[in-house]
Simulated scan of single mutants.
Amino acid sequence: MLANLHEMFYQWFIRKLYLRDVSLYFPIMSNAPEYLNFAYPDFSVQYFVSTFRPGKITLEGKIPRSKLHFFSITLYGVDGLPIYSKSDADLSTSYVETVDLDVVAALIVRFYRKDPKESFENYLPTLSVAKKEVTRSARLAASKKLEKLLLPKIAKQNIRIAEILPTEPQFFKPNDQMLKSLFPNPFAHYLIARPSNQQGYIDITTPSFSMDDYRFVGFMVSNYSTTETDDSISLSGNRRYRIWFGVGPPDKHMKYYLQWKSSNAFPILVYREVRIKKLGLAKHKIMLGPTQLKRIMNYPEIHYFK
């Protein structure tokens, strides 16, 4: 009962945020770690948010394919779950999309960047609904303010889930319900691990990348309570990697390294893949353990220091 009340309050809070910004043109941007470090972001991903009342909306834009690993447009309800989504595999380079909304919703436009320093504000779609333009400085300030407002609510929302999170030091796939309220990318699939030690390394052979299947593989060291990412790394396809992780600075031989913040009281390791085909992880909504995962994917093995 208490959990349901927490969920109802959270959805009321999110709806209030949607309606607060409904007159503005993409007033919120995530560009972690500086802006809106929330929902386990990878530092190479930039996304923008605009909200809508019920009704018909048309988006018209152009996808800068040569600059991106992946692009998508997704609409979310107040529960933080997708109600409509298309990726660049579904869209023309110059696209026009019309959606008839019957609920208040948020649109997230995601850019998985090849150059993490490049900004994609100039590639946001035009909208059929009249909205007030915002300056870049106003967008950045609003995103910072929202992060401070949102993270305590997320931490409260995650208390119940944290209590039932398996004590599994190797990667497992969480039940999709555990991602509720985190505005998941429908084309992204996650593994998480609760580290038995904050020092060690991950071995993985990445799958081959192609336009019609795998687009992205990356790892993050994050905070489960707040969903903030401390550090992240994006990988190339069809390569063998050893990725070290720890709290302090890396040793010289550690080419790829993820560093936890010393203040992180709830450390968690996160694996993310973005895939177009509905195979492997994409076919499963329930929790899967290491043994099951090794049968369906290039499984990342974690080795902890003693």
Rank of each mutant, 00 (worst) to 15 (best):
V217I: 15
A155D: 07
Y190V: 02
E228V: 12
M254C: 09
L151H: 06
E168G: 10
F209Q: 00
T227R: 12
A142M: 11
D230S: 15
G218N: 08
F216M: 12
A162C: 08
K252P: 04
T167P: 05
A155M: 08
S208V: 11
T167F: 15
P166N: 05
I154D: 00
R160C: 08
M211A: 11
Q199W: 08
P166E: 02
A155C: 05
L179V: 04
F245S: 12
I202W: 00
S232W: 04
T206P: 01
D176L: 10
N238E: 04
L151E: 10
I161W: 06
N185W: 01
F183L: 15
D251H: 10
M211W: 04
N158E: 07
T229V: 12
D231I: 03
G200K: 13
N175C: 11
Q170F: 13
G246C: 09
A162K: 14
F209S: 02
T227P: 08
A162M: 15
I204S: 01
S143A: 08
V247A: 08
F216L: 13
L150S: 13
P152E: 09
P250H: 14
G237F: 04
M254V: 06
L191H: 00
F245P: 13
I161M: 13
F209R: 03
S143N: 14
P174N: 10
K144A: 13
F209H: 02
G248N: 12
S196H: 03
N158R: 15
P169M: 06
L191M: 11
N238W: 04
G237S: 08
P249T: 15
V247W: 00
N238Y: 06
F219L: 13
P207F: 00
R240E: 10
G237E: 00
Y241S: 11
Y190N: 05
R194E: 01
S210P: 00
R242L: 09
P250R: 14
D251M: 09
S210V: 04
D203Q: 12
I202Y: 05
R239A: 12
S181D: 01
L235E: 01
K156P: 03
M178G: 01
L149V: 11
K180W: 00
Y201R: 13
S236K: 14
E168L: 14
I202S: 12
P195I: 14
M220K: 14
K173M: 11
M254T: 11
Q177P: 02
A155Y: 08
M211K: 06
D203C: 05
I154L: 09
H189V: 04
V247P: 04
Q199K: 14
N197A: 09
Q198E: 06
P184Y: 01
P249G: 11
Q157E: 10
K145Q: 15
T167N: 14
L146Q: 07
P152W: 12
